[in-house]
Each structure stands twice: as structure tokens, then as C-alpha cells.
Amino acid sequence: MNQHALLFFLRGQGLKFAVIVFTFGLIYRLLHPVLLGRKKNLAAPRGGEWGPGMRTIWHRSLFPVRLTPRGHFIIIAGYIFHLGFLITLLFLSQHIELVKNTFGIYWPALPPGAISIAAVLSIAALAALFVHRITDPVKRLISDFQDYLVWVLTLLPLLTGLALDMAADYQRMLIVHIISVELLLIAIPFTKLAHMLTTFSSRWYNGAIAGYKGVKA
């Protein structure tokens, strides 16, 4: 298989497969626990569920003020990584073109220079969090293989995308970039990366429980 055939496969059937696994798996992982329901709460409600649930989704996305310095580091690095990743994903014109060509919707792009800065910051944050993970004794102890796997899978699309316009061979780097993205898509439903959706359902649930009890989450 030459490079052109490989690229054609990755932009066609390969992508299709990755998207099926990703969408099917993620929807399943989001809906299954929700539809499973929960035990009937016999206690009399002291407040609503919906409002506090939604509030908690929002509230926990905000920057927590009262933290130790170490807590600050993790929160800041986490913010930088997530924001950088999202900006790169959603505001690079080539990515918008993908969505536009698939779903017909589009929005303005950011200049490539801004995207590069976002990607570099995101990569730097990932690197810092990795160092923290292997140097902190507690973090190291509770980290398993999957934690390192998802770190690599998340890092690769950022790195290969950033390298795309510097690479001597654009096509080869594009192939590597798309492979890394499709691996990430396939891995998401089977790993902790499913938190990209389930984090919202679990936050809502936490808020809802507290709301039912009439306390702040």
C-alpha cells in the first residue's frame, strides 16, 4: 500500500470505523448508567434536583479559589491543557473544514499562530502533569497502565499536528496525525477519556443528590 492509498483509507473507511466506535461507545457509556436508574429515595426532598445539578456542572468548571499550592499547579496545568486542546481542536481552520464538509456547520477560525501557541501550551501542560505524576509518590502509586496510555494517546495528535507544517514530508506527517487521531477516537469509549461526556452526567448527579438533601454540593 503506498502513501496515497493509506491516506485515502484513513480519510475514508478508517475514519468511518473510528467514528462508529467513538460515537457508539461514548453514547452507550453516557446513557447506560443514566437509564439504569437509581434506588428510590424514600426521604422527603428538601430541594430540587435539576437546578442544583446544572449548577454543579457549571460550578465545578470554575476555578476553585481555596487550594494548596500543589493543588493550584494541578488545576492550572489542567486548565491550560484542556483549553489549549479545545482551542486547537475547534478553531483550527482545517478542523473547521472537516466539520463543515461533514455536517455543513462552521464558525470563524483563529489565526494559525494562535493555534500553535495553544497547542504548545497544551503540550507543555501535559508534560508538566506527566512529570508531576511520576515524581509525586502518591500519584505514582495510584497510576496504572491506562493512565500512561491515555496520556500518550492525547499527546500524539497535538504533537503530530504541530509538526505538520514543519515536517519535510507533509503527507507522511498527515498520515501519522490522522492515525493518532483515529487511535484516540477509538480509545475514548474504552478508557477514562470517556470523561469528556460522563464528567457532566456525574457532576449533575452529585449536584442533584445534594439538592435533594437541601445542601450545597
Binding site: 480519510r11 475514508g12 468511518k16 467514528v19 460515537t23 473544514e97 472537516l98 461533514t102
Partner: peptide, 16 residues
């Protein structure tokens, strides 16, 4: 564009 899929994945995504 080179960054877009060569197949239509809209129906596939919805179906999945």
C-alpha cells in the same frame, strides 16, 4: 479539502 473525509460520515455518525 485535504483535512476533510473522503466519505460521507454524517449518516454513519448519526446511525452509530
Amino acid at each position: 479539502p485535504l483535512s476533510a473525509p473522503v466519505v460521507n460520515i454524517e449518516a454513519t455518525t448519526l446511525g452509530a
